[in-house]
Simulated scan of single mutants.
Amino acid sequence: MQQCQLPSHRDRPRLSYVDYGGSGTPLLLLHGAFGRGAVFAELARGLVAHARVIAPDQRGHGLSDHADGYTREDFVEDAAHLLRVLGLGPAVVFGHSAGGVTAYQLATHHPDLVRALVIEDAGPLMRRPEIARPVLDVRGWPAAAPTKEELARQVAEAAGMPDVGYFLQSAVRDEERDCWRFLFDWDDMMAVQEGNVGEWWADWLGSTCPALVLRGGNSTLLPADLAREMVDRRADTHLVTFPDAGHWIHDDDPAGVVAEVIEFLRRVG
């Protein structure tokens, strides 16, 4: 596992990515809002024997640069640029949440770069009323605290939820400021989420490569009927539901996700 960087390119921010190593089929892992490439560490450990695994910190996240824009096109073109510079296309592209939308939009707009898709708990309708809360209002949430425990406590209080572990994966110790802080900016994360709101059926149906859809049975972001419609309307698409998992299936059942992805990789070559 090695943290690497692509230099900035024209109007594109400098992108950092985790090179998990491995050999064989290139596998690009795209995190969702608030994430970073390192959130896939456990998943990657189970996959490097079967694929060449790369996971970028997308713009505004992790160790990549912040940016002026966080549109769908921005994320798609960043992913395309990364694959081209690293010479990894066509790749199997795995995307979680907003990263899933980026994955299937990449397949539609750059089909030469995508061999197959794995979409984790993301659909083509990211809006109300189909999704009760497509945007989590994080405005004003704490950005730093003296300790990681205090940062977790403050975020849990702001969020009104006990488990904020996903957010804390993007918290780091800042020695210069003597605090723990988030790598992302909460206002940027609002822009990321708002840019993901929409109706994306044309992008989901615009590619023909094999696709695997993973749904968390306890997730509210990909309803069961919408997941089934995704499969029914698109050829060569298979659905797997993890009944005890929430939105972050790769955290709730990493072994199960690894097994499904390995089987999929064997099928698509």
Rank of each mutant, 00 (worst) to 15 (best):
D252K: 07
V39P: 08
R128S: 13
S23P: 00
G95A: 13
V85T: 12
L83D: 06
L82A: 01
L214G: 07
V192C: 13
L183G: 08
R215W: 04
M161V: 14
S170Y: 12
L117C: 04
H96W: 09
G35L: 00
D253S: 14
H238V: 13
V258F: 10
V101T: 15
G37T: 12
A33Y: 02
A122H: 10
D112Y: 05
L221D: 10
S219K: 07
Q105E: 14
V257R: 03
E260S: 13
A235I: 02
G99E: 09
R234G: 03
Q2V: 11
V197R: 02
R52L: 06
V231K: 01
E157A: 15
R128E: 15
R177K: 12
A107P: 06
Y20C: 01
V197W: 06
A191P: 03
P111H: 07
W248I: 10
V85K: 10
P111E: 05
R139G: 10
G195F: 04
I54K: 09
A38P: 02
F75T: 07
S170Q: 14
E149D: 15
E199P: 03
P90L: 06
V240I: 14
E150V: 14
A211H: 02
D244H: 12
G35T: 09
Q154A: 14
W204S: 03
M230F: 05
A224L: 10
V240Y: 03
F242E: 05
G87C: 01
L125F: 10
A49F: 06
R12G: 08
V213P: 01
V164H: 07
A41H: 15
A152R: 15
L63C: 08
R133S: 14
F167L: 12
Q5M: 12
D232G: 06
S170K: 08
R72T: 14
F242I: 08
G24S: 00
A79G: 04
V18C: 12
P134H: 11
Q2N: 15
D78I: 09
R139H: 11
Y104S: 09
V114L: 00
D112A: 13
S8V: 01
H61F: 10
A33F: 05
F167Q: 05
W201C: 07
V92F: 11
G256K: 07
R153G: 11
A143E: 15
G60M: 01
A171Q: 03
S23N: 11
H109R: 15
W180K: 08
H31D: 05
R267H: 13
L30V: 07
E77Y: 10
P124R: 06
L6S: 02
E263C: 13
A44R: 11
G165Q: 04
K148Q: 14
G216P: 02
A91K: 00
V135T: 09
Q3G: 02
A79N: 06
T147E: 09
A44S: 08
H9K: 10
A143D: 12
L183H: 04
L212N: 06
E157G: 11
L83Y: 04
F182P: 04
W248A: 14
R266S: 15
E175N: 14
H50S: 11
D19T: 02
R127K: 13
A98L: 12
H31P: 13
A202G: 09
D236A: 10
